[in-house]
Design a protein around this nucleic acid. Structure first.
Length: 388
DNA sequence: CACTCGTGGTA
DNA sequence: TTACCAAGAGT
């Protein structure tokens, strides 16, 4: 049986780790980074662990272009670790609204509070200690330690996995435990003795700018002479794709209950999709299926659900929205409901009336915020822009 | 360990 | 349009 790794991994143990050592590899990456890498990103050219940490959390599974605006706005609102730790979590969620993976925002807040309480507001420099903090895993801990403290520690993010898979010709799915373990061994063994910051940034930059998933620029790559995938014409086939599975489709009816320029919002549970965000109340219970098997709530069911909040004056089905997640597709049928008389919300825990003008600042999921901004017109959108 | 968790860009 | 997936972590 042949190993998917190239060259075949030796027996486990410290000695096998050392067998991957290759000073020329790191020297090549470092030289390339200093000449052609990125040096002007907002979170670079600093050793402030707060600035580095925030960027690393935002950049988890999120591309640089999507982070830039959020990073600037977040720091304008929370310029220091203390301001973040002492802020209400709702404010943190509002700043994160639209960026996705909202557990990151809750863990960010928790982490700030723990660093303040346990480390007097100063991040530890040891990656093992960093990795014990909420939201910081092994790779993120290494990146923070390397960039903010010059600590020699290995990262293993999507960029590194892709570069390694190609350069070393690793023809196995990197998400598989055994393969990932082997990748960590290489990552540790290839670390340079000097210049950990340039090396770490260089791996990220190579993956992000040259060794991209699609249409990589091998002609400009400093690792091309030693790239197994390039030599064997397998660049397009590596890294091995994740085994695909068919994603389910889900349906939700959202109630857009409007009264006197306000819309009714409901706090979502802390866990699960859009955890901890505000959103529109959803219609639960069984709904009759139409010809395509799509649940279609009838007017009576909608009126019954909305009746908890007031006397329904009118209701109107809005255009359906399809929102695609990584692992399923959600079909939203929004239903606009006008109230003739509003009941008080005592006994309706987690519900709140939101001014139309404040929608842009509310901690809402992206599709819900988009829908409401359209419904409430340019006034709410203008208010959003003014706030920044 | 397999699964969950957002959003926007790309082909 | 559909499918894929990017500076991963938590469960």
């Amino acid at each position: 049986m042949t190993s998917p790794l190239h060259p075949p991994p030796p027996a486990l143990g410290a000695a096998s780790n050392a067998s991957f050592a290759d000073a020329d590899f790191s020297a090549t990456v470092i030289a390339w980074q200093r000449a052609h890498g990125r040096h002007a990103l907002p979170w670079q050219n600093t050793r402030d662990a707060y600035l580095v940490w925030l960027s690393e959390i935002m950049l988890q599974q999120t591309q640089v272009a999507a982070v830039l605006d959020y990073y600037a706005r977040f720091l304008a609102r929370f310029p220091t670790l203390r301001t973040l730790a002492e802020a209400p979590v709702e404010d943190v969620m509002a700043q994160w609204s639209g960026l996705g993976y909202y557990t990151r925002a809750r863990n960010l807040h928790k982490c700030a509070q723990r660093v303040l309480a346990e480390y007097d507001g100063v991040f530890p420099s040891d990656p093992l200690l960093l990795a014990e903090l909420p939201g910081i895993g092994r790779s993120t801990a290494a990146a923070i330690a390397a960039f903010s403290g010059g600590v020699r520690a290995a990262i293993l993010d999507g960029n590194v996995k892709r570069v390694f898979a190609r350069v070393f010709g690793i023809a196995a799915y990197p998400g598989e435990k055994k393969v990932e373990q082997a990748l960590w061994l290489r990552a540790e063994a290839l670390l340079p003795q000097q210049g950990i910051e340039s090396y770490t940034q260089g791996l990220m930059d190579l993956g992000a700018t040259l060794c991209t998933r699609s249409s990589p620029d091998c002609q400009r790559c400093p690792l091309q002479p030693r790239c197994v995938a390039y030599a064997t014409h397998r660049v397009k086939d590596l890294p091995v794709r994740k085994p695909k599975k068919t994603n389910p489709e889900k349906h939700a009816t959202m109630l857009v209950i409007i009264d006197r320029g306000q819309v009714l919002l409901q706090q979502r549970p802390a866990t699960g999709i859009w955890g901890g965000l505000l959103s529109l109340p959803e219609l639960d219970g069984h709904m009759p299926l139409d010809g395509d098997g799509v649940p279609q709530p009838d007017h009576a069911a909608i009126a019954l659900a909305a009746g908890r909040f007031g006397e329904v004056e009118s209701q109107q089905r809005l255009l359906p929205i399809t929102h695609v997640f990584t692992h399923y597709k959600l079909h939203i049928v929004p239903c606009r409901i006008a109230l003739a008389r509003r009941l008080d919300l005592a006994g309706e825990a987690g519900h709140v009336w939101q001014d139309g003008a404040g929608i842009g600042q509310a901690p809402l999921p992206a599709p819900v915020k988009k829908l409401l901004l359209e419904l409430f017109g340019d006034a709410a959108a203008a208010q959003t822009r003014m706030a920044f």
